[in-house]
Design a protein around this nucleic acid. Sequence first.
RNA 1: GCCUUCUUAGUUCAAUGGAUAGAACAGCCCCGUCCUAAGGGGUAGAUGCUGGUUCGAUUCCGGCAGGAGGCACCA
Length: 549
Amino acid sequence: MEERIRKAVNEALATLGAADVAFVVERPGVAAHGDYATNAALAAAKQLEKNPRELADSLARHLTEMLGEVVSHVAVAGPGFINITLAREVVALAVAEADAKGSDWGKGTAEAGKRVIVEYSNPNAFKEMHIGHLVGTIVGEAVARLVENAGAAVARDTFGGDIGPNVAKALWGLRENGTSEPTSASEIGEAYVAGSAAYESDAVAKGEIDALNQALYAGTDEGLMELWRKGRAVSVGEFRRIWELLGTHFDFEFFDSDTTASGVRVVRDGLEKGVFRVSDGAVIYDGEKKGVHTMVFITSHDTPTYEAKDIGLAFLKEERWPSDASIVITGNEQTGRFKTVLAALGEIAPLVATKTTHVATGFLKLASGKMSSREGNVITAAGFIRSVIEKASEKNADPLVAEQVAVGAIKYMILRQAPGSDIVFDEEKSLSLEGDSGPYLQYALVRARKILAYAETGAGGTEEPAEPYAIERLILHYPAVAARAARELAPNLLVTYLTELAGEWNSLYAKEQVLGSPEEAYKQRVTRAFAHTMTNGLTLLGIPTPERM
RNA sequence: GCCUUCUUAGUUCAAUGGAUAGAACAGCCCCGUCCUAAGGGGUAGAUGCUGGUUCGAUUCCGGCAGGAGGCACCA
């Protein structure tokens, strides 16, 4: 519909002698203004040297004629906006479509035929996942689902750190404790904290840890490698439990150790071609010439840094799952580093670099100050989820429902904001399950489903309301919202829409009785359309849809 | 010092250069004969400061103030 209006506006502008006008067709901020609005007259006024109001008037006349029975009226408002209100039959058609299509309602085709690989979560083995990792995992899953919904074939991958100084610190700590069989992520996390502390304060320990790091890369110390493999398995097992709880699975779980060799090879190769240069014994990329930070790719100890591993990873992904686009989701503290890696990659493999998009997620900040896994004052992901589930249990005896509500609350808290902006984490508030929250959306859906469950025996009244309900005019925009959220990789756009949708539903629910009313058949159709829209929207966000609350 | 980014109501967040800057929480006032009140209705409350571009700026550009992140051998 939006396309159709856009086309009509373009043709109308052409008849008036304006070409290549940049205008928008959008849902007006105020519902009373209509279903669509365009600023075309304002945008074209200058080019045509006409009064915007007058231009809007003639444009509106053309549009009324061209759109015919599709619209009920076209009005000019304010400085020259053109507001378009759809005919009720068109609204009814959209609602009927939502009703009929069910889980297919809102599926798009913008990315049809494309292969997209999405990387996110990226946890470090030998550290516990903390609440910061929740952000990337949750945003990543939502982005993957949005892109999938737009028609793309999507592969999910995660890139875990399993080698390097941090791992050496954890291994040192485990050895210090005489642990040869680590059994829990928290045990390993504590060993890491101990190793980090020793690295800072104890020169002997520092030397030992550095040696362990080199030995890890060499991979010849069988005893060490055995402990490394066991520790990694325990960490990864814990990650998988959290991923499952959050509704995420990965097609590829890559690790540093998989990309080290190819990363080094590619960087060495780039060194010969002059992409990199040697400085103080290290191989660096001179970022200044491109306006990015200069960074070390291979250290003077001949070990690769994360940057070299990232280069290796880009090639590994290409080899395992060739794609048309590659999306990488990380914390925003990685943005500078990522620019350098992409700049370097751009000189080595331009095609791989240009198809890569970096999405930065916000930092989860504690009201009490910065978290640091090195200092051990972190809120672990597992612990946090547990505490929210506990809170949700107060109102939900069913443990499955409590879990669904808790996961919904956490995801909503993170997805409601534009990715990239920091999230202030206040435990009291984030545990609240009311108002602008995941459970608010879930609850609206539960109430609608309950009506539909009662209504299974058939509908009574066949009358229709004089005007479509406000929620119907909202439902018809769902496919466009889902498409835009996918295009902009911005799940928050969908969250805002669904919150508004839930509000309209609750409002209708309070005012109108569905069952047994004179308009029962009509209202049931609206209820089904709402339920499908909310279910599909929440599913795209990865928010569970409980059967009852 | 350099680079990036942010600053909207008491608080947490929205708003492709457009209309009366939207919500929610907290506050105050209402709604329990009716499909689940985790609800609904009402009320009050905000664009850091300062120039510029524009018919029009929360949005773009400059300056100032304040916050966050990054800046070669950590990830």
